[in-house]
Amino acid sequence: MATVFPFSAIVGQDEMKLALLIAAVDPTIGGVLVFGDRGTGKSTAVRAMAALLPRMRAVVHCPYGCEPESVAGLCGVCQPTRKSEAPKSRLVPVPVVDLPLGATEDRVVGALDLERALTRGEKAFEPGLLARAHRGFLYIDEVNLLEDHLVDLLLDVAASGENVVEREGLSVRHPARFVLIGSGNPEEGELRPQLLDRFGMSVEVKTPEDIATRIEVVRRRDAFEGDPEGFAEAWKKEEQKLRRRIVAARKRLPAVAVPDSAMERAAQLCIGLGTDGLRGELTLVRAARAVAAIDNHKEVGDAHFRRVAPSALRHRLRRNPLDDAGSTVRVERGIAEVFGP
């Protein structure tokens, strides 16, 4: 694979970077949606994050990359052998799977292995993209242009964490827990509300307005294109630092306390904004906890809520699509009401 632009070298776009880091620290957050102008480095950031993630341990020869330690939620290959012996495992990169536009359903969910069927007459299951994305990330660029029948399919799998294939005489189920990452440009069409709701956090990116930032963006990009390896080498230290921070934050995460008072604050904010359902509160608390873990704080507090509330709640407001005040403004207003200016 070609050298990718280092994550730490991305100029500005702090909200997007934070949201991606939160997803890397706590995958249960439910995915990140990045919506914004053209040419703001949306895809660059996601691909860069892929290179940043620390490797994970996976069972050797398991087509789904099951976790060696866990007992629940294993695939059909690992399940029977698990009780008797400890499986062999190895370090693999965390999968960040691209779902390209124009992908066909059979490749997404998996289908009959054509080659084995034609040459040997065997009925075998060939895992698809969802299998490959298990325990990792599924990235959909231009998510608002994704065809409806694929969206339906993703919604179901993302909700249940399991991919059930019933086609061509195959009956296969395998775990498919992944973090959904979508990006797109709102001018090219809206996202279906159901899919919108599946994303834990939603980030708006804008082209930087001040000239110094813009010059820096162009300069770094230019340096990268001139000598990708050299550029990556120069940023290697920063990258490693960030990677260590992610690893440390993951370790700290279970220990971060969420006091009842903080829960109450989150509930106040959600009630004030009138978000639908409980998913908003849950995501808000989880994201705040992840931020606390990243910053090495022991307890979730107002400061953490302030940082994550716009991304966690922006897309959950009962929406009047024509309201002049954008959702971001409404969330900010709500924050000011609950937490003070």
Binding site: A2, S43, D98, P100, G102, A103, T104, D106, R107, L129
Partner: peptide
């Protein structure tokens, strides 16, 4: 953007 073509269709990757 990516300098590569990714195909996931017709049982091919």
């Amino acid at each position: 953007d990516t300098g590569e073509v990714v195909v996931e269709r017709d049982g091919l990757a």
